[in-house]
Design a protein around this nucleic acid. Structure first.
Lengths: 140, 140
DNA sequence: TTGACAAACGCAACTCAGTTGCATTATAGT
DNA sequence: ACTATAATGCAACTGAGTTGCGTTTGTCAA
């Protein structure tokens, strides 16, 4: 079962309306190989001849975030990037030259770090954001 | 020797002008206990009766970044935060309730992660950004 | 100390991402 | 098909960050 079908069913079952735009945005997000900004999403929709208003895109992203179906990734340059939360938790390698983003998993190492932090500072960690910047194989 | 004095001397020796505003901004940054945004910096300057133009603040931050005296920290909410680069490399714990930021050191654990990434993906890591979000002792 | 040059500055006008209020449209259940 | 309301479009707005240009100011050499 493709991921976007599951998500669409999930929303319907939770009693939410499934509009053409919402469906299209979910499909688009499920096809993304890297986190995408609101404006990039808007451009993609236009490309597919579904010219929606930017307000709608922002509101839809808010909605999907509230439903915990997507989450925010923040890179150094400033704009929020969104990706489906359904995908396994991971981190990103961002090439500073070609801007390409790869996924990477280093949670075992991080868990160690989190345990230390909890012990040392009594800070209760709920979430974290880890991004690496450097050069990908092609750009080195 | 206070940090800001060192930085001011360093800039002078490199042949850069030391204007009243530049000096004030460096001092202000050196007094910060947490990364600060451009607009916060602007507000602080106004408080000290040095009402500079926002353009100047942005240009000065660009300058200090080019001199590698400050670097950017990005939290989830969108705006760039700046802090002196002179301070030892570290990461941040950000309380999602009171917004307070604490510093934390977990580089040993991260080095392990970086080595693994280099081995697995041949990605050359130049830098990273790691922020933890959660509840500080007071807010739990 | 003064004068000259370039760096730094202020100002106004701009760009662009993101937001808000309100009127209109479309979805889902009856 | 009808209705209630969620979702949408539109226009106007906000606020961070940028740009061009004319003015001011720090530095250095005379």
């Amino acid at each position: 079962m493709p991921l976007h079908i599951t998500l669409i069913e999930q929303l319907k079952n939770a009693g939410h309306r499934m509009t053409t735009t919402r469906r299209e945005i979910i499909i688009l997000l499920s096809e993304c190989t890297a986190p995408i900004t609101a404006m990039e999403l808007l451009a993609q929709l236009k490309k597919r001849h579904r010219a929606v208003n930017k307000t709608t895109v922002y509101r839809e992203l808010d909605f999907l975030q509230a439903q915990q179906l997507i989450h925010v990734v923040q890179f150094g340059e400033g704009h929020k990037h969104f990706e489906l939360a359904e995908t396994e938790h991971h981190h990103h390698l961002r090439c500073i030259k070609c801007e390409r983003v790869e996924d990477v998993h280093v949670d075992n190492e991080l868990r160690l770090a989190e345990r230390q932090i909890r012990k040392k500072s009594r800070f209760k960690i709920m979430n974290h954001s880890l991004e690496f910047f450097g050069l990908c194989v092609q750009c080195q």
